[in-house]
Simulated scan of single mutants.
Amino acid sequence: MSDPRFFKSSYSGGSGGNCVECAYGSDSVFVRDSKDTDGTVLSFGRPAWATFIDDARRGLFDQPR
């Protein structure tokens, strides 16, 4: 992907700057640190990303209180 259009989640505003940005490609999702936009970009296949998002929504990665 030559010029991905990265975006931040609307939920990222109150997290103290600990955010990632995402961009969608035809077969992949790209993720980078919002504070280091020239740094490493991770790439995930769309099925793997969809599984990650579903698991996050179900609370699989929530920290115990």
Score class of each variant (00 low, 15 high):
residue 1 M to V: 15
residue 2 S to L: 15
residue 3 D to C: 05
residue 3 D to G: 11
residue 4 P to Q: 09
residue 4 P to K: 02
residue 5 R to C: 04
residue 5 R to Y: 12
residue 6 F to T: 03
residue 7 F to P: 03
residue 8 K to V: 06
residue 8 K to D: 06
residue 8 K to F: 00
residue 10 S to V: 01
residue 12 S to G: 01
residue 13 G to H: 02
residue 13 G to D: 02
residue 13 G to N: 04
residue 14 G to L: 08
residue 16 G to A: 11
residue 17 G to Q: 11
residue 19 C to F: 05
residue 20 V to N: 01
residue 20 V to A: 07
residue 20 V to G: 01
residue 20 V to K: 00
residue 22 C to Q: 06
residue 22 C to E: 10
residue 23 A to S: 01
residue 24 Y to D: 13
residue 25 G to V: 10
residue 25 G to E: 09
residue 26 S to G: 12
residue 27 D to M: 00
residue 28 S to W: 08
residue 28 S to H: 14
residue 28 S to P: 10
residue 29 V to C: 07
residue 30 F to A: 02
residue 30 F to T: 07
residue 32 R to L: 05
residue 34 S to H: 08
residue 34 S to E: 03
residue 34 S to P: 04
residue 34 S to W: 04
residue 35 K to R: 13
residue 36 D to Y: 09
residue 37 T to R: 15
residue 38 D to A: 14
residue 38 D to W: 02
residue 38 D to F: 09
residue 39 G to E: 08
residue 40 T to P: 10
residue 40 T to K: 08
residue 41 V to P: 06
residue 43 S to N: 12
residue 44 F to S: 03
residue 44 F to H: 12
residue 45 G to K: 09
residue 46 R to T: 01
residue 47 P to H: 03
residue 49 W to L: 11
residue 50 A to W: 06
residue 50 A to L: 09
residue 51 T to S: 14
residue 51 T to D: 13
residue 51 T to F: 01
residue 52 F to R: 04
residue 53 I to W: 08
residue 54 D to G: 14
residue 54 D to S: 13
residue 55 D to R: 15
residue 57 R to F: 09
residue 58 R to F: 11
residue 61 F to Y: 15
residue 62 D to I: 03
residue 62 D to K: 12
residue 64 P to L: 02
